[in-house]
Design a binder for these strands. Structure first.
Length: 197
DNA sequence: CCCTGATTCGC
DNA sequence: GCGAATCAGG
């Protein structure tokens, strides 16, 4: 595949829209994200200047004044030092509360058996909760089968209803949930204690 | 581990 | 000009 006018145009469009290089590459097909990034640079729009007003104070004193000896090929190649790897220490402890109880559930009585006692909202930080309800609008609303190792597995709604789905947003590394849901699922023990009412 | 963009350099 | 390999960061 070569960079035809239309392909370049699509590239420019998507790039200025904030699409990632990999997304653009997928859309275009026949190219890798590296190719896209390379092209972006050659086109000179690496600064995402597509629509960004940009900060006036763009102090870019980069003289770029490389002495004639530009061919300089330093590459100090620092030695990969060992990683002491801090220490587990104060690791937040997973809270085993049942997620459910989305704001949408309200007072509707589940069609089936009454749900088990739900600790729900009262023990979760308001901030985290707010964050959740906000991103839930953007949720992918996946079905059980659509979940992958990389999609948030946070359930939303009532399983006894049609109004039930899984968040599906990109998960936080290692975790089973997206950032927002990790926020309500995992809490430092202290925070949990303090909230006790 | 997954992803992001940035850079280098042989082709 | 092109883009894989690599780098650097989240």
């Amino acid at each position: 595949m070569s960079w035809t006018d239309e392909r370049v145009e699509l590239l420019k469009k998507m790039w200025s829209e904030g699409q990632s290089a990999s997304q653009i590459a997928k859309e275009l097909g026949g190219v890798t994200r590296n190719a896209v990034i390379g092209k972006v640079h050659r086109l000179g729009l690496s600064n995402r200047a597509g629509a960004a007003p940009a900060a006036a104070a763009e102090a870019k004193p980069e003289p770029k004044a490389q002495p004639a000896a530009a061919k300089a090929k330093p590459q100090p190649k620092p030695a990969p030092a060992n990683k002491p790897e801090p220490a587990p220490e104060a690791k937040p402890q997973p809270v085993a509360t049942t997620p459910a109880i989305s704001p949408a559930r309200k007072q509707i009585i589940p069609a089936g058996q009454p749900l088990p006692p739900q600790p729900s909202t009262n023990e979760i930080s308001p901030e985290a909760l707010a964050k959740v309800s906000e991103i839930e609008k953007k949720a992918k609303k996946l079905t059980l089968m659509e979940l992958t190792e990389r999609t948030c597995k946070w359930p939303v709604g009532d399983p006894a209803t049609e109004d039930f789905w899984f968040c599906g947003l990109p998960v936080q590394q290692g975790k089973p949930y997206c950032e927002a849901h990790v926020g309500v699922a995992f809490q430092p023990m202290s925070a949990r204690r303090d909230r006790r009412r």
